[in-house]
Amino acid sequence: MAKEKFEDALDKLEQIVREMEAGNLPLDSALKSFEEGIRLIRFCSAKLDEAERRVELLLEDGHSLKTKNFQDDVNDE
């Protein structure tokens, strides 16, 4: 399964909430949508709560590439 994108998840969540608010869903669809909504909220929240970023330098090393941590006073604050 392809990696889910934050924006797609957020859009889907928005759509689910709007559909449910319209109130036209049969009960079992509403329950399914609700579960899916909860899952999307968890997913999006997890994305937002992801760990601290990595800041790296991309360097050429002969014919290949390597990365190196970028030390910066901003990041060390």
Partner: peptide, 13 residues
């Protein structure tokens, strides 16, 4: 960092 602290940065100097 202020807007979204967990986005990775790759600097090509």
């Amino acid at each position: 960092r202020r807007r979204f602290p967990s986005v990775d940065i790759l600097i090509a100097p």
